[in-house]
């Protein structure tokens, strides 16, 4: 469904990511891992058509993402930024309603029917009772759920999430990631999520890409690997680590040397 071919990208002259290629099928959630500044957000922006690569192509359903008009592109790809940028009093329903924008004519306004759809999207993340609340008064975890509902209303096949758990507490991290996974599976979407915590990625993602120095270091299917593979793949970026197995799940721990 998604084909990334030989992507290199930069903001100025220095390339941030180089020669990245991979495929991803629908119904799969891909986790992007790597240290700070390795280019996770840059890669997501290129895939979302928000940043033009210096080289390479991103194909969605065999068409180059840059050939879509911006409105059309937004019907294929949604992008959830690391932090939402809503600063004014806004009703929760109105925030979700923004997701209908790619389906509106430039001069038109959402209809009652759109509002109903937005309400249904809220239901999918179990937040419908907050529809007339002020978005700014919600907790960070709730805000992220509302933004997921907005992406759902946007109804794009490819859903991108840039560290959606970065400002959340332990419980909310798991809540958000399991919700994202559930949505990807239930609606047969294609999801890419950048994360910092390798254990979260191992737990929730079907595929994982590890980026190192702006390049693709490893790309694997979490269902097809063993302890040794994980240990080898991750120690290259995280250094001294130990992988433990517990209830058929793998966890990465930091080696503490004294």
């Amino acid at each position: 469904m998604l084909k990334v071919e030989n992507i290199s990208a930069s903001y100025n002259k220095e390339p941030i990511i180089e020669n990245i290629s991979f495929d991803l099928n629908s119904g799969r959630l891909l986790g992007l891992l790597g240290l700070n500044g390795v280019g996770k957000t840059t890669l997501l922006k290129v895939i979302g058509g928000l940043l033009k690569p210096i080289e390479g192509k991103v194909l969605i359903g065999d068409k180059d993402i840059l050939l879509y008009k911006s409105k059309e592109r937004a019907r294929y790809v949604s992008y959830m930024p690391q932090r939402n940028s809503i600063i004014y009093n806004t009703l929760v329903l109105d925030v979700v309603l923004m997701g209908i924008t790619p389906y509106l004519n430039i001069f038109s306004y959402p209809t009652d029917d759109h509002k109903k759809k937005a309400y249904d999207a809220l239901k999918m993340v179990n937040m419908e009772k907050y529809y007339s609340n002020n978005f700014l008064h919600l907790s960070e975890g709730e805000k992220q759920l509302i933004l997921i509902a907005r992406s759902l209303l946007q109804n794009s096949q490819l859903m991108l999430f840039d560290e959606p758990d970065s400002s959340l507490d332990f419980n909310n991290k798991h809540m958000i990631l399991s919700k994202i996974k559930e949505i990807i599976k239930e609606h047969n979407k294609t999801g890419i999520i950048s994360l910092h915590d390798p254990n979260m990625a191992l737990e929730y993602c079907d595929n994982i890409i590890i980026l190192k120095d702006g390049k693709l270091h490893t790309y694997f299917n979490t269902g097809e690997i063993d302890k040794d593979y994980i240990s080898k793949a991750f120690s290259d970026i995280y250094g001294d680590i130990e992988v433990v197995e517990y209830n058929n799940r793998y966890f990465i721990l930091r080696q503490i040397s004294d």
């Binding site: 930024p81 924008t101 038109s108």
Partner: peptide, 23 residues
């Protein structure tokens, strides 16, 4: 008035606005 919904979206960050299909 004609651009009222699109202007609404401009209150988001530029990347967020563009990902919603707004030029």
């Amino acid at each position: 008035f004609l651009l009222r919904w699109q202007i609404n979206i401009l209150s988001l960050s530029d990347d967020e606005g563009r990902s919603l299909g707004v030029n």
